[in-house]
Simulated scan of single mutants.
Amino acid sequence: MSIPAADGPPTVAAVVREQLLAGSSLEMTGDDAGALVAARHLLTDGTRVNITFLAREDLAIRIEAARTVVALGLTPVPHIAARRMRSEEDLQEHLSAFRSVGAANNLLLVGGDPASPLGPFASVAELLRATSLADLGVQAVSLAGYPEGHPKIDPSYLVSELATKLDLLRQQGISADIVTQFSFDADAILGWIERTRKAGVQVPIRIGVPGPAGVNQLLRFARRFGVASSAAVVRSYGLSLTGLLGTTGPDRLVAAISERYSRARHGEIALHFYTFGGIAATARWIMDARDVRALDMSGETEERQ
């Protein structure tokens, strides 16, 4: 990789940051197709775009979003929520529809929100045991990770269940990675990755970070998903009480991850952006952040192993 020079050689953190951003992905809803078209010029070819599975959006909306992602030369990653599948036929209908627009190669599988399953699958593991995704054209699957835990699931169960799902995917010959819930805390993120690696999970991990958005909007999402208290967000982002009406980006969080990253401890990682403030704002932030000349260049060149 060629890094343009600034006032001195790029720091290790600057190189890591460039690598994390080069392979970054982002999230959209079915309603975001128009916004994605408008922001396409800000995105690199092949960028992975995850298409969420919201209860208020039907399959037709998600298929149209996937069609748009493909047409724009980007890589669609539709979400499939196991507990929302009403039957095996329902699952096959979803995959067939995504396959018809060239969007079934890569999926993200998540359990889903319903307290009771709408069909036969209470979990992703049950779906994988019952269905050969490889026979339905799936080549790669992303699984969910939770650096700050899940409000309804015991942490030890999350780790063991993750290993089970990865083993089921290996048996089907499907490659895997992990996409984490968004977090505001670099210590929580990197600590969770280290523990996950020590548990034997070595697949690539995409770290979920919030894109630039209004501060109060970020606080609402943090409370809604149970990932952090308002005080923790303010502390992690270095915000002041007078700045709560403004907009903030993940600069401080991404810098902290870049500075503390160790290949030996954390393995292969990239960034995944949740576009709470809009796709264009996130895409522009990524584009601007990838200009390494704007980074802090202290002249440090030691390679961390």
Results as ranks from 00 to 15, higher is better:
Ile3Lys: 09
Ala5Pro: 08
Val16Tyr: 01
Arg17Ile: 00
Leu20Val: 02
Ser24Tyr: 00
Gly30His: 02
Ala35Met: 03
Val37Thr: 11
Gly46Leu: 06
Gly46Thr: 04
Val70Gln: 11
Val77Asn: 03
Ala82Ser: 13
His94Cys: 14
Ser100Asp: 09
Gly102Val: 08
Asn106Ser: 10
Leu108Ser: 10
Pro114His: 09
Ala115Ser: 13
Gly119Lys: 12
Ala130Gly: 06
Ala130Met: 06
Leu136Ala: 13
Val138Asp: 14
Gln139Ser: 14
Pro151Trp: 11
Asp154Pro: 09
Tyr157Phe: 15
Leu158Cys: 10
Gln171Asn: 14
Thr180Tyr: 04
Thr180Ala: 04
Gln181Met: 01
Ala186Thr: 01
Ala188Met: 03
Ile193Tyr: 02
Arg197Val: 07
Lys198Ala: 07
Gln202Ser: 15
Gln202Tyr: 07
Val203Phe: 05
Arg206Phe: 01
Gly208Ser: 08
Asn216Cys: 07
Ala222Arg: 08
Ser229Phe: 03
Ser230Pro: 05
Ala231Tyr: 07
Ala232Ser: 12
Ala232Tyr: 07
Tyr237Ala: 14
Gly243Ser: 14
Gly243Thr: 11
Leu244Pro: 00
Pro250Asp: 05
Leu253Cys: 11
Ala256Glu: 13
Arg265Thr: 05
Ile269Lys: 04
Gly278Gln: 08
Ile279His: 04
Ala281Leu: 13
Ala289Leu: 10
Glu300Thr: 09
Gln305Trp: 12
